[in-house]
Amino acid sequence: MKKDIYEFEVAKGFILSNIFAFAIIGITKHFAEKQGVLIFSEFVIVPFVMGVICAWSWKELGMTRGRMTWVSCLNALIGIGLSAIILKEGAICLLIVSPLIFGFMITGAFTGRAMFKKNNQNLNVSILSLLFVLFIADSLSVHQYENLVSDEIVINAPPEKVWKNVVAFEKIKEKNKFWLFQAGMPAPMATTVEGYYKGAGRKCIFSNGYIFDEKIVTYSPNHDLTFDIIGQPKDPEIMGHIDIIRGQFLLKDNGNGTTTVIGNSWYKLYVFPVWYYDIWAKSITRNVHLRVMDHIKALSEKN
């Protein structure tokens, strides 16, 4: 096959599959039950069908496995790049979503290759119809998910000494250990408080200057500090994807001069499938906890 025809067919696959994907995402956004919710189908069925569309466009090219994998990866990168431009997604978000996009797009391309090799129209129509039904069913389903992440640390100091560092603390100077923080995801830096009472405002300041506005809802000195998040920064990395609802520090006197501190965070996810995104949400929340709690431990154990 002539090189220009080959390149045209490859480009056709890229263009058709991306038009399909962004049309579907646009339609889904328009009819979504809640604006900003990104459903399972958009990360699973859409890239899978994009791969199938590519395989259809490339069916006469006799691509080797290696070549098909490369061009599918390239198409995934194009899709991810367009998501940054059109959907204004942040770099960390795109990094998190990329394994799904790469995985399902390549799977779709190789499934499509097998489908079109068999040339069984009934089978092809059945597979695509099944995917369409799944997509519609998923789009019409209610998507709601809340979870709690809890972490515990023992501090070699009595609760009275720990408490003052829990309510507010000076700037964290410790280097970031978590790879996503090192990659540019905002990490917690400091916390300020308006006053030491229930109803007082609290601010959690992140490394890029973003501020979470909080309000203390339980103030039980040396025992329980619970706060609701009332204002979340408009960061493209988190905007519309996750809401941190509430945070809590519980202190338990161990009776031997040490204190067990339990950090709890409640959050709501707006990206699905949960089996994938909750792993990330838990990991990020846990690392926020640990960075803050390690800092509280260092401050409290300081002479």
């Binding site: 290696g66 994998t69 995985g103 399902f104 799977t107 190789f110």
Partner: peptide, 27 residues
């Protein structure tokens, strides 16, 4: 459903980067 296929696809990407000849042998 599809999990093993996606895992196999990601393996293929890994092989493509680390040992591309293997994909030619499979062909």
């Amino acid at each position: 459903p599809l999990f093993p296929h996606v895992f196999d696809s990601l393996l293929r990407v890994w092989v493509l980067v680390t040992k591309p000849k293997l994909l030619n042998w499979l062909d």
